[in-house]
Amino acid sequence: MSTGFLKTSVGKKVLMGLTGLFLVSFLVVHVSLNATIFMMDGGQTFNSGADFMAHNPVIRIVEIVLFAGLIIHILQALTLTLANKKARPVAYAKIDGAANSSWYSRSMGILGSLLLLFLVTHLSHFWIDTKIAVFKHQEHNTYLEMKEVFSHWYVVLIYLVGVIALCYHLLHGFQSAFQSLGLNHKKYTPLIKKVGVWFSIIVCLLFAAMPVCMFLNIVQ
């Protein structure tokens, strides 16, 4: 069944939802760890956390799964978008999209592309350096690297754009994933939608606060 299931339009949705929620779970870990910079201990807690994430073998394996999930999510989105374009070969001359849906629910592809561009920037800022340090068995002070990277206003700006794209992507994606998995219930769906909105806002505000506070030297 499995290959057959993933070939159906429902199966593709389920895969998008599952990988999406998996990526959401990563965000929880990422934002929690990074929020330790607000402990104002000169990055001590943060660096020990980052060190654990860089060396723990379980995390290493999860990291590979994470990249796999991300790649599946992106490739699937690309395939689906191309198929959807084919489903409407002649475009409407006039569309009143605002009358029936939110702009961000209709812009998941653009928001996702922005996120991907941001991710490339983000990984080149931190992830690659950390990897090199691990391979060379060197000490790596991620906290100091953060301070350095976020001392440039244009970098802070890029991060803010990335975080805003993430926020809107999550505003639709969080509850949409549950719907795709068939987890819709009169009792729980309103709660899932509320949690999705608060999750998107809180996570993104925290992420946005990091570069901003470092740039403004609020975190020292």
Binding site: S9, V10, L80, N84, A99, S105, H172, Q179
Partner: peptide, 22 residues
């Protein structure tokens, strides 16, 4: 029915909710 739907060349759902609204 899902197989028949897919065969007809309809697009894929992204849960925008436009269908329900209209």
């Amino acid at each position: 029915m899902v197989a028949a739907m897919d065969e007809e060349g309809f697009g894929n759902c992204t849960n925008t909710g436009a269908c329900e609204a209209e």
